[in-house]
């Protein structure tokens, strides 16, 4: 089911949480609403769900205007950040809740409900927990039960608020992959909110970057990473080196191999993996001094200081594969030559 938001605005007192949001989400996508805390992403999710009313604008689900419709009639499944499992009910009763509160003429029989709940529990691989209470479950298990409960009513849209926010790092990694696979299997249009760009890039098929109640960019993860629309997106997604673009920096960038014709903007953003590092053969080709490095697993992050008489001493980061770094046999204090392959310019 497609989702179309037009001109959504929301104010809390004088604080503008959302500012004329226009967003279109095609059917079957797994979309991440990504942004720093306080950017309005959760508010937007709650407005789509109907848990919050927008001050202006329309929410259209599958071509039907649902702006005025109550949350219980929108056909959405909502997974809360802290799961919001009913603490006085067993796992089974939690999942069955949505089926049991249906009006009499749509309500399935108790046998059908039992069958459906067990099917859902098998889907989330937790059938053995059906008679436990929520406080007897781990965080990851609660998350999956909350998801099963939301799926029980066969929602047209699945909305997840910071689904991995309250979990341990290791559990989070597993659940990300699992959610992605589950989405492949069910193909229900899903939106999740996150402040973790890595999570958004890894899980989502579409990423919407929000900041200060506005949409900064929407696109596939690779699009957003390779072609950031503005300085905020470039800085927020992945690592980047920011150069001011004044004469000193421009000359340094040029000498480090970045082709600049007719300076296209005020600041230049360079990804660490777009900088090649080599040992300098002589003083003239030395662009930087190697200050330090860190192991990031398969990659090495190198800290560099610009080697120019009047340069600021801001650290420039470069990244290269572990193996390559070993081959170069670099030490702290070594003079290195650089080749900067690519930069994004912003005003």
């Amino acid at each position: 089911m497609s989702i179309i938001l037009t001109n959504i605005s929301k104010n809390f007192g004088k604080f503008a949480a959302l500012n004329h949001i226009n967003l279109e989400i095609p059917e079957g996508e797994l979309v991440a609403l990504l942004g720093p805390s306080g950017c309005g992403k959760t508010t937007l999710l709650r407005i789509i769900a109907g848990l919050e009313q927008a001050d202006s604008g329309r929410v259209v689900l599958n071509g039907e205007d649902k702006t005025e419709q109550h949350v219980s009639h929108r056909g959405i499944g909502f997974v809360f950040q802290h799961y919001a499992l009913f603490r006085h009910m067993t796992v089974f009763d939690n999942i069955a809740f949505g089926l049991r509160v249906k009006p009499k003429k749509h309500r399935p029989g108790e046998a059908d409900i039992t069958q459906k709940v067990h099917a859902l529990l098998e889907l989330v691989q937790l059938d053995w927990l059906h008679d436990r209470f929520p406080d007897q479950l781990s965080g990851g298990q609660r998350q999956r039960i909350a998801l099963a409960r939301a799926l029980a009513v066969e929602p047209d849209v699945l909305l997840l608020d910071e689904p991995f926010g309250a979990l341990d790092a290791s559990v989070r990694k597993d659940l990300r992959q699992w959610l992605r696979n589950l989405h492949h299997e069910l193909n229900v249009t899903s939106i999740f909110v996150t402040h973790d760009q890595e999570e958004a890039m890894e899980v989502a098929s579409q990423v919407v970057v929000l900041n200060h109640g506005r949409i900064e960019q929407q696109g596939a993860p690779s699009d957003i990473y390779d072609h950031p629309a503005n300085a905020f997106v470039s800085r927020f997604i992945g690592q980047t080196n920011v150069f001011s673009g004044d004469d000193q920096d421009t000359i340094w960038l040029q000498s480090s191999g970045l082709p600049i014709n007719d300076k296209p903007g005020k600041t230049a953003h360079v990804r660490p993996h777009d900088i090649d590092v080599e040992k300098a053969s002589d003083e003239a080709s030395a662009h930087a001094v190697l200050k330090d490095w860190q192991h990031l697993g398969a990659l090495i992050r190198i800290e560099l200081v610009k080697n120019a008489a009047d340069a600021d001493n801001a650290t420039v980061y470069a990244e290269m594969p572990n193996e390559q770094f070993k081959r170069l046999q670099l030490n702290r204090g070594d003079k290195v030559s650089l080749r900067i392959r690519n930069a994004h310019w912003f005003h």
């Binding site: 949350v71 219980s72 809360f80 919001a84 009913f86 949505g98 509160v101």
Partner: peptide, 25 residues
């Protein structure tokens, strides 16, 4: 109010929410 909101999002009406979720708590 998260549990109550969850009940509503699952299709419960106000009375069902109160009797089945709020009251037991």
């Amino acid at each position: 109010s998260e549990e109550e909101e969850a009940a509503l999002s699952l299709g419960a009406n106000g009375w069902q929410m109160f009797v089945q979720i709020t009251l037991p708590n």
